[in-house]
Design a protein around this nucleic acid. Structure first.
Length: 350
DNA sequence: GCCTAACGTTGCGTGACCAC
DNA sequence: GTGGTCACGCAACGTTAGGC
């Protein structure tokens, strides 16, 4: 089967019916993200997903597994309600997750919403009751344990190479933003904020920056106290009570998922570069390299962009990407449940 | 009211490329 | 050489929700 590119809206139900057992979806996030206007279903970029919601209701042979990824806040949207209605109409069993790579021991926060919908071949509502749930924990997969230890940023960064010096951030960035709390990571840091599409060009506001020396080599710990004027700040996603489909999720439940700054409260800091003595000159800050970002997102070491893709484009693509370990973990969980369901069907049919 | 985060957005300048 | 088009990068700016 060849990959195809095109609009979803012109396609009819017959072009989907019975064609695939698994649908993997990552619809545009702009209608739902806090960074946008949150036009939800009114945003033209939601049209493809909403069309698929209508299509699902019409299918005689719906996919057995449907997997969807989107930003946090999608779960509060009208589009989400339309999706749930469509899945309920086809008697899917629905599980929803709001999780982050830090729950798999990766020192990075990237809170995302995931929906896993599984459907039995038996069309009776009793067999697939359409139950939905929202979880803030990584599910266990076939009894395998989830890593309990949080990794260090030092496990993901490059330590050698002339290109590291090219990643140094101009000091004017810090003098222009004297009160801004940068997310400063060092080798020992065990939590970083989300890398976004604008990383590398939005003056350190689109993700974490790395403490380093003049050659861009990462430093193991934070600089002396006189290098900073403020060391505690708000996390990227502040804790809050979250109401999902009428159910209030407690702050404490949500907090441990999104509030990873409790792991390292020192890392949000204003960067003061006014002191230009020799000691201060030894401490610099740089962007993470595309390779380092790829590692944090779980891409294999052999992955490489085509030569024609500029560094800026690489930042944009990786910042707009998914966390592969998180998606892989949830897909393993979903496929394992599908296998169990098929086994049950086999026994029932024999 | 101010500050901050966020798979932002928009407008403008620049350079490459092509046709004339 | 000139003018038009396009892609790209940069910088400034907008939006919304939530914390303090």
């Amino acid at each position: 089967m060849q990959p195809q590119q095109g609009l979803i809206e012109p396609l009819s139900a017959s072009e989907f019916d019975g064609r695939a057992d698994v649908w993997l979806m990552s619809p545009p996030c702009q209608p739902y993200t806090r960074g946008g206007k949150q036009l939800d279903a009114e945003d033209t970029r939601a049209a493809g997903l909403l069309h698929l919601c209508d299509i699902i209701k019409e299918l005689a042979h719906p996919p057995r597994l449907l997997f969807l990824e989107n930003v946090r806040c999608f779960e509060k949207s009208q589009s989400h309600k339309r999706l749930m209605d469509a899945l309920h109409s086809q008697h899917y069993a629905i599980e929803q997750f709001i999780v982050t790579p830090s729950q798999l021991g990766i020192p990075n926060t990237r809170v995302r919403y995931y929906c896993i919908a599984i459907r039995s071949r038996d069309l009776t509502p009793e067999a697939s009751p359409g139950v939905e749930s929202m979880a803030f924990e990584m599910p266990a997969v076939d009894g395998r344990e989830i890593p309990a230890d949080m990794g260090r940023v030092g496990d993901y960064v490059e330590r050698k190479g002339r290109h590291l010096a090219d990643l140094l951030i101009d000091r004017n960035v810090f003098t222009k933003n004297e009160t801004f709390l940068f997310d400063v990571a060092c080798e020992d840091t065990r939590a970083t904020t989300t890398f976004t599409k604008g990383y590398g060009r939005n003056e350190g506001r689109a993700g974490p920056i790395l403490l380093c020396d003049r050659q861009g080599r990462p430093l193991p710990s934070y600089p002396p106290a006189q290098q900073t004027i403020q060391v505690n700040g708000p996390s990227v996603d502040s804790p809050e009570d979250c109401r999902i489909d009428g159910t209030l999720v407690s702050m404490e439940t949500y907090r441990h998922v999104i509030d990873t700054h409790v792991l390292d409260t020192r890392r949000f800091r204003c960067v003061c570069v006014s002191c230009d003595d020799e000691a201060a000159e030894c401490v610099r800050y740089r962007y993470f390299s595309p390779r380092e970002m790829l590692r944090v997102h779980g891409f294999p070491e052999k992955f490489a962009f085509p030569a024609c893709v500029t560094t800026r484009q690489q930042y944009g693509l990786i910042g707009n990407s998914i966390s592969i370990p998180v998606v892989a973990h949830l897909l393993q969980y979903a496929l394992h449940k599908c296998m169990l369901l098929m086994d049950g069907e086999g026994r029932a049919g024999s």
